[in-house]
Structures are given as structure tokens and as C-alpha cells.
């Protein structure tokens, strides 16, 4: 039981970072970004690639580049077709698969991991918890606090909140909505990128990870309610616990099916999610 709790919290923390960005973009710009998992994987790969030259500092250029990539995706791919919902899905899905194939060609089908800066194991009531997993907990909490600060204390954050509530009214009061959308996309990409590095630090990434991550991101934001950042944070931990519990008690291969079925069940029974927002 304790194992499930501890490991669930840790994986849930990673999902928090993934899903809050995903949810933010949908809530603000109504963009369903199927390439969200790509940010996650791409950032991890860049950090791993630069590690031999920069050491742990490679995290910084990786996250910055991922943010830039998010901006490029929004500006050149998503923005032109933003009014056609299905086209947004198709174009981001095509992009996700394109990047996956490119990564496959460059890095081959090899699982890569990011070296962890800490080592050692802590025993909590007999359950071994590696230090590198505790690190994740710390980083995830710190990043979430930063996000909260950005959203509630900065001008841009307030613009984002305003736009998500009423884009037309925001435009009327002089908010540059396009710019708000770009910034949201950049923030979302960077959050996913950080999560990617954290994930690669304890597990490993391979090009196919992006679709896997996307599935969990979907499950979480739909459970938490599309567009609700707080809902998705709570849902992240719920999904994290479910995932670990199923892995421990049954079979990890069922964990993904459970996530997928959650999506469909919630959509059919309660399309607005647990903490539904309009």
C-alpha cells in the first residue's frame, strides 16, 4: 500500500507538469495539442545530447529550445488552422509522428536516460525510494509554485487568465490575444520539457514515448476537466495512483488501457470532467 502511495505521488508529480501545460493551452486557446508529448520527448533528447558538453547545465538550453519549438509550432502550424478543430488535431498529430520518425532516424530505437545528479536510496518504512525520485518531487513542486506565481502575480499571467475567460472581451480591452496564445504555448511546451527531463532521469525515453505520454495527458485533463489547470493537478495524482496501483497489483500493460478507458468513460458520462469548467 505504502509503495503505491509513494510511487504514485512521484509519477503524479511528473504528470502534473505535463497536464497543467496541456490543460492551459486548451483552456486559453482551445487548442487540442496532439504534439504535447513531442515537447516532452524532444526536450529530454536535447538535454541528453548536450549533457557530455554542458553537464547538468544542458537542462537550460534544452528547456529554452523546447519553448522556442512550442512558439514555432503555434505560429506556423497551429495558428493558421486554429478555427478548424479537426485540422488542429490532424496537424499536431502529423507533427508528433514526424518528429518521432526523425528522432528514430537520428537516435535509433534505443532507450536513453538522463544521468541523475543524485544517487542513493532512502528507505521509508521498508520501501526503497531512490533519491533521484525524491528529486522529482522537489522540482515538480517548485515548478508548480513558479507557475502559480506567474499566473497570479504577473501581468502576462493575468492576461492569460482573462483571455481564457473571454477572448473577445480581452481583445476589446486591448490584450494582444495572439501574443497571449503564443506565450501560453511556450509555457506549456517548457513545462512538458521539464517533465521530460525528470522522466528521462528515472526511467528512459525513446521516440515512441511521446504517444504514450500523450495518452496519459489526455486521460488526466479529461478527468480533471478540459481547460481546468487545478482540476488537472488533482487528476494527475489520481491517475498516478491508478497507474501505480494497477502496475503493482495486476499488470502494467493494463495501466494504459485503464487510462484510455477513463477518458472514454468520463467523456461519455460527464463530458466536462470532474472539475468541469465551461
Amino acid at each position: 500500500m505504502l509503495e503505491i502511495l509513494i510511487y504514485g505521488i512521484i509519477i503524479g508529480s511528473i504528470w502534473t507538469l505535463v497536464s497543467s501545460g496541456f490543460s492551459l493551452v486548451f483552456g486559453v486557446a482551445r487548442i487540442l495539442n496532439f504534439a504535447h508529448g513531442t515537447f516532452f520527448v524532444l526536450c529530454a533528447y536535447i538535454a541528453i545530447l548536450l549533457f557530455p558538453y554542458l553537464g547538468y547545465l544542458s537542462v537550460i538550453p534544452a528547456v529554452i529550445f523546447t519553448g522556442l519549438f512550442g512558439w514555432i509550432v503555434y505560429r506556423f502550424l497551429v495558428s493558421p488552422v486554429r478555427d478548424y478543430e479537426v485540422m488542429v488535431i490532424l496537424i499536431t498529430l502529423a507533427l508528433a509522428l514526424l518528429v518521432e520518425e526523425i528522432l528514430l532516424a537520428v537516435f535509433k530505437d534505443v532507450s536513453k536516460s538522463f544521468p541523475s545528479p543524485v544517487s542513493g536510496v532512502v528507505f521509508v518504512a521498508g520501501v526503497p525510494v531512490p533519491m533521484n525520485r525524491l528529486l522529482i518531487l522537489g522540482v515538480a513542486i517548485a515548478v508548480t509554485i513558479c507557475l502559480e506565481y506567474f499566473m497570479s502575480r504577473t501581468k502576462m499571467g493575468k492576461f492569460i487568465t482573462a483571455t481564457s475567460q473571454d477572448p473577445e472581451a480581452s481583445m476589446l480591452v486591448g490584450i494582444d490575444v495572439e501574443r497571449v496564445y503564443s506565450v501560453t504555448m511556450v509555457v506549456s511546451a517548457m513545462l512538458a520539457g521539464i517533465a521530460g527531463i525528470l522522466y528521462a532521469q528515472i526511467y528512459s525515453v525513446n521516440p515512441a514515448t511521446s504517444l504514450r505520454v500523450l495518452i496519459y495527458a489526455f486521460a488526466i485533463v479529461i478527468l480533471g476537466g478540459l481547460g481546468s489547470v487545478r482540476g488537472s493537478i488533482v487528476a494527475s495524482y489520481i491517475i498516478g495512483f491508478i497507474q501505480v496501483a494497477i502496475s503493482m497489483l495486476f499488470d502494467p500493460r493494463w495501466a494504459e488501457i485503464a487510462a484510455l478507458l477513463t477518458i472514454i468513460a468520463v467523456l461519455i458520462v460527464r463530458p466536462k470532467g470532474l472539475f468541469g469548467v465551461e
Binding site: G120, V122, F123, M131, L134, L137, G138, I141, I145, E148
Partner: peptide, 26 residues
């Protein structure tokens, strides 16, 4: 067999505390 390294439980407790404050903030 590796020896267990107790004493680190303090770190876990700290992390838990951090988490609790974060949740309350939100």
C-alpha cells in the same frame, strides 16, 4: 547485498511537508 541506509527518512519527511504546504497554497 547492499546495506540499508536509514537516517534518510528525515529527507522524505521534509519532502512530504513541502508537498503539504504546496497543496495548501493551491
Amino acid at each position: 547485498q547492499k546495506k540499508k541506509t536509514p537516517g534518510f527518512e528525515l529527507v522524505t519527511a521534509l519532502a512530504g511537508l513541502l508537498l503539504a504546504t504546496a497543496v495548501r497554497r493551491k
